[in-house]
Write a protein that binds this DNA or RNA. Structure first.
Lengths: 297, 297
DNA sequence: AACTACAGTTAAGTTTTACTTAACTGTAGT
DNA sequence: ACTACAGTTAAGTAAAACTTAACTGTAGTT
């Protein structure tokens, strides 16, 4: 195994040799013409001979360049083939997906029949979980997370921002005339995501001592339970718009004090970079973006 | 032509797959184990699956890794073949060499029979020139230059430093009793290399006004002519030691005032980097270094 | 002859990648 | 319990690679 020159330089050589144009090679390789020029120069220095004759408006191969081309072309075609085979989707008709539990049950699953109608050949298998599972181990294709979008070794694509509302049952709302009176009722909270900062913001905005009125019902990491409790009139909750906008529209829940809190977190599609090339994932993410864009703010 | 992952990562994958050891792959690729580890991780992120199962004291390939290996191995073997074919010497028994004229005629050519005796299968073809010719165009293997060793797109290997002496014919030396009297005799100069700085140094050292005594005979860029003229007693010259040390030993020339000037320039072997791998060039450069080391200072 | 358009070159600066080092982790063997 | 070894990872440094902008040379056009 000899010392090879910079491998990208060989790749650019191939592109230039096939097109007989540094400009066309640059376009093909998504770099500038200068980059191609410099790499060819590096290769020529490495080999100690010229590979191209520079002409006006195009280049041509020297004898040395012609000698080099076939093996390099064959070499890269094998590399392309090897890489291409592995990038390909082993299960093009099954989409294994993890989704945070709240979004799954309250928003996605009720809509999935629309995706099924549009793409009947793709079976979506949802696994609700609030943890980021290992993709390889669990044969996952995609995850929908709510967070800051930074996951090691994974690519994130932002789906949507969200807003948190302070809400309760309309019957309970009649008993809440001032912001301060909120503390006299059960407040439904969770520790995850942006809910705690939202409460803090509300208390600060209305100059309320958060320690007054210790009636809070704490449910650890379960937006779903909190929303069910709020719908049942059991307390006041901070909830993301995407999870309750339909109940707001139907008057099953009402906003209090017009309080809104812009989340720092957002919804993300998360997967290994290669997965985003899979057609089923492109179909699903297009559909999902459309569904998200239909959520009223 | 798909987007490929970093090509060096594929190369390290191949080394690791063939040895089943990141440590052995690192040794083979002349990088650290950490570099291999990081690149494999990058590849696994690119493909969205694991390529190796990490074990104690060795690794093994996953199914995905086993699927990737054959095409990558074939791909790189073609790249190695293509590159190897071009690096190989098209004329292993002829060494085309340019040498600065002065060194060629006064020192190298008289010794070349020694090289021929030692390497009878290598024909050295010398082209004396004081210009750096194009290697490709002139089918050159090597050049011997006297300079600072910095030539664009070429590699330089330093052969030797040199020293400049102030010399003349012994007969003429009898008429030169003081440094100042040097100006009353013809001084043989050239514009190239370190000769002018040497003269300047001599004048400064002896507090001589260089404009006094305008008998200088100027020969443009021809040490050979200057040396011939000095040997004929026609004037005083600054000359590099390597070109006249034999004449000094035989008393055909004498040093004046024990003046020496250490050259800033040096002798260099110059060629495209690839040429230094050629066996004939390795033989010649070893021989040449020995010949240079035999020059008395 | 002058001007224009285009492709390749190169210097200089910026960005990105790749590498190393050092500390750490886990697994066997002693 | 200790030791040895191979792989991992964070942090820092060095090198490579890229871009931009100015330049050059060659045809074609006016």
């Amino acid at each position: 195994m000899n010392k090879l020159p910079p491998l990208n330089a060989l790749r650019y050589f191939l592109a230039a040799a096939e097109t007989l144009s540094f400009k066309a090679a640059a376009e093909q390789m998504f770099v500038t013409q200068a980059a191609i020029s410099q790499h060819i120069k590096t290769l020529e220095a490495f080999f100690g001979c010229q590979l191209f004759i520079r002409g006006h408006r195009h280049v041509s191969l020297t004898k040395a360049g012609e000698r080099l081309l076939p093996d390099i072309a064959t070499g890269f075609s094998f590399l392309d083939k090897g890489v291409g085979n592995l990038v390909m989707d082993p299960r093009p008709n099954i989409l294994n997906l993890t989704v945070i539990e709240s979004l799954s049950s309250r928003w996605l699953v009720p809509r999935l029949y629309l995706f099924q109608q549009e793409y009947p050949h793709i079976n979506v298998r949802i696994q609700p979980t609030n943890r980021l599972l290992d993709f390889d181990q669990n044969e996952l294709d995609l995850a929908i997370r709510f967070g800051i979008g930074d996951y090691p070794q994974l690519k994130s694509r932002k789906l949507a921002q969200d807003t948190i509302h302070l809400v309760c049952h309309p019957g309970l709302a009649k008993q809440i005339d001032t912001a301060q009176s909120v503390s006299r009722h059960p407040t439904l909270t969770e520790k995850s995501s942006d809910i705690m900062p939202a409460w803090k913001s509300f208390y600060q905005q209305h100059r309320i001592n958060p320690d007054v009125g210790r009636n809070a019902l704490h449910v650890d990491d379960s937006s779903v339970t909190i929303i069910e409790a709020a719908l049942a009139g059991q307390g006041i909750a901070m909830v993301r718009n995407s999870l309750i906008f339909e109940q707001l529209e139907k008057g099953q829940l009402v906003k209090l004090f017009n309080f809104s809190f812009k989340c720092h977190y957002a919804y993300y599609l998360v997967a290994p970079e290669a997965h985003f090339k899979r057609e089923k994932i492109q179909c699903f993410s297009n559909w999902l973006e459309r569904m998200f864009s239909e959520i009223p703010q």
